[in-house]
Simulated scan of single mutants.
Amino acid sequence: MSTLAWFAFASLAVWVWLLLGQGFFWRTDQRLPPLRDDRHAREEPGTWPRVVVVVPARDEAGVLPLSLPSLLAQDYPGVAEVILVDDGSTDGTGDLAVELAGRCGGLPLTVASPGEPEPGWTGKLWALRHGTALARARGPEFLLLTDADIAHGPDSLRLLVSAAVGNDLDLVSQMARLRAESAWERLVVPAFVYFFAQLYPFRWINRARPWATAAAGGCVLLRTETAVAAGVPEAIRQAVIDDVSLARAVRRAGGRIWLGLAERVDSVRPYPGLGELWRMVARSAYAQLRHSPPLLAGTVAGLVVVYLVPPVALVAGAAGGDAPAAWAGGAAWAVMAGSYVPMLRYYRQPLWLAPLLPFTASLYLLMTVDSAVRHHRGRGAAWKGRTYARPEAAPER
């Protein structure tokens, strides 16, 4: 066989393994039970625990009117309140939050400001440190850590607490449904979640004896005593990928974790152009690889073999009369596209986007390389006017 055919068969073998041996990552059925499900209704707590919602926010005036009212309007049977930590905003985020609370009513709102981060802290974790300290003074059993761009259905808090109490979980996290309305969002966003699930298969995370550990930082319900035992957020203060770091800290402390896709928890942050999406991915991609050049090289090679070889082999093999290369490349591309269909359905996107996954993967490859270049130029992870020149990756231990 030709060299191209060998690469095509290697890619096909990898895709068969990914399809069957990587925790069925491509399926989208890891969800919290619906509110009206009878089994779920029987598992609801007799006494609902106290919850404090902590929202770190920096320059979020553009999205706050779409997200904060949904938190204030939570239909929660127990005692709950919201603390919004205004992390040095320059667009009036704190004042807008107070105005929205006065207009919408609902759960009590406290707006606090921690000042500029101390050395060794990333901005979001510095805000969470201040917010969780205020929250613990209220004596809650649970903390809900949620981003300022996340809108929650009215039963979101109730479902999260019910799942945590009914299953004796210390951390329950939902991957918020990101916005996918513009052309670039439709092309890039579902693939972002698909790649995340491929790296951290939800089934492996949710096993009684887990094989992987991760969380989604936009929506994390955390048992307060477990947070104290894990030493968070202090233990992960330099992490850029704070959600994975948080999950690992909780797991090290003996906590039980669940992660799944959200039904009624949505990100309202727009990413209308490729530039915004590029910056979102590039700011943390190299940190995910622990700033390791060998891991970067391996990742680039893996992306090329797994995602780019199949269409190249199909086209080149068909044009050059290399039947084995064309057949293996076409089969690998078909398996790849088929595995992407459930995520496209979850995001309510047209299925013709599935064969475009190799193109999207090439964009992620370039974003990852760009992330490494920024790091080695000392620009590191830049977000909301702050740059962390040498941020730490999520700790492994």
Score class of each variant (00 low, 15 high):
residue 334 A to T: 14
residue 307 Y to C: 07
residue 309 V to F: 05
residue 235 A to H: 14
residue 312 V to H: 07
residue 263 E to A: 07
residue 298 G to K: 11
residue 232 V to L: 10
residue 308 L to Q: 14
residue 340 Y to G: 09
residue 249 A to D: 02
residue 243 D to W: 02
residue 318 A to G: 15
residue 307 Y to L: 06
residue 240 V to D: 11
residue 237 R to I: 10
residue 250 V to W: 08
residue 278 W to H: 13
residue 257 I to L: 15
residue 289 L to C: 11
residue 272 P to H: 04
residue 245 S to T: 10
residue 320 G to R: 14
residue 243 D to H: 01
residue 226 T to K: 14
residue 275 G to H: 05
residue 240 V to S: 09
residue 293 P to D: 07
residue 312 V to E: 12
residue 283 R to T: 03
residue 268 V to E: 02
residue 286 Y to M: 09
residue 266 D to L: 00
residue 332 A to S: 07
residue 260 G to F: 04
residue 233 P to S: 07
residue 303 L to D: 00
residue 310 P to I: 06
residue 254 G to W: 11
residue 297 A to H: 05
residue 256 R to F: 03
residue 286 Y to E: 11
residue 304 V to K: 05
residue 344 L to P: 10
residue 280 M to H: 14
residue 280 M to Q: 14
residue 229 A to S: 09
residue 337 A to L: 02
residue 342 P to Y: 07
residue 268 V to A: 01
residue 293 P to M: 07
residue 266 D to V: 01
residue 284 S to G: 10
residue 332 A to W: 09
residue 343 M to Q: 06
residue 270 P to Y: 00
residue 233 P to H: 11
residue 226 T to C: 15
residue 297 A to L: 15
residue 335 V to D: 08
residue 314 L to E: 03
residue 285 A to L: 04
residue 341 V to G: 05
residue 291 H to D: 12
residue 296 L to M: 04
residue 329 G to S: 08
residue 280 M to R: 12
residue 319 A to R: 13
residue 256 R to Q: 09
residue 339 S to C: 15
residue 291 H to M: 14
residue 311 P to L: 12
residue 330 G to C: 06
residue 281 V to N: 04
residue 332 A to C: 05
residue 260 G to R: 03
residue 337 A to T: 02
residue 289 L to Q: 08
residue 278 W to Y: 11
residue 328 A to T: 05
residue 298 G to F: 03
residue 327 W to P: 00
residue 251 R to L: 05
residue 338 G to Q: 15
residue 337 A to P: 03
residue 255 G to I: 01
residue 232 V to S: 08
residue 293 P to F: 09
residue 344 L to F: 11
residue 244 V to Q: 13
residue 334 A to P: 05
residue 250 V to A: 07
residue 343 M to F: 13
residue 331 A to I: 06
residue 270 P to V: 01
residue 321 G to C: 06
residue 257 I to H: 02
residue 285 A to C: 10
residue 227 A to C: 12
residue 271 Y to F: 13
residue 246 L to V: 01
residue 253 A to F: 10
residue 283 R to A: 02
residue 237 R to Y: 12
residue 285 A to R: 08
residue 271 Y to P: 00
residue 333 W to M: 11
residue 231 G to T: 14
residue 242 D to L: 01
residue 301 A to H: 07
residue 246 L to Y: 01
residue 269 R to T: 00
residue 317 G to A: 05
residue 332 A to F: 08
residue 275 G to P: 00
residue 297 A to D: 03
residue 234 E to G: 14
residue 275 G to M: 03
residue 332 A to T: 03
residue 272 P to I: 03
residue 308 L to N: 05
residue 292 S to P: 13
residue 325 A to N: 15
residue 259 L to I: 08
residue 305 V to Q: 04
residue 274 L to H: 02
residue 293 P to I: 12
residue 286 Y to N: 08
residue 274 L to A: 09
residue 269 R to C: 00
residue 228 V to F: 04
residue 254 G to H: 08
residue 318 A to V: 09
residue 316 A to Q: 10
residue 296 L to W: 06
residue 322 D to V: 08
residue 299 T to E: 03
residue 268 V to W: 03
residue 260 G to P: 07
residue 253 A to L: 09
residue 252 R to H: 11
residue 225 E to L: 05
residue 277 L to W: 01
residue 243 D to F: 01
residue 231 G to F: 10
residue 291 H to E: 11
residue 228 V to Y: 05
residue 301 A to V: 07
residue 227 A to Y: 13
residue 268 V to H: 00
residue 320 G to S: 07
residue 327 W to A: 15
residue 236 I to P: 12
residue 336 M to S: 13
residue 273 G to F: 04
residue 311 P to I: 12
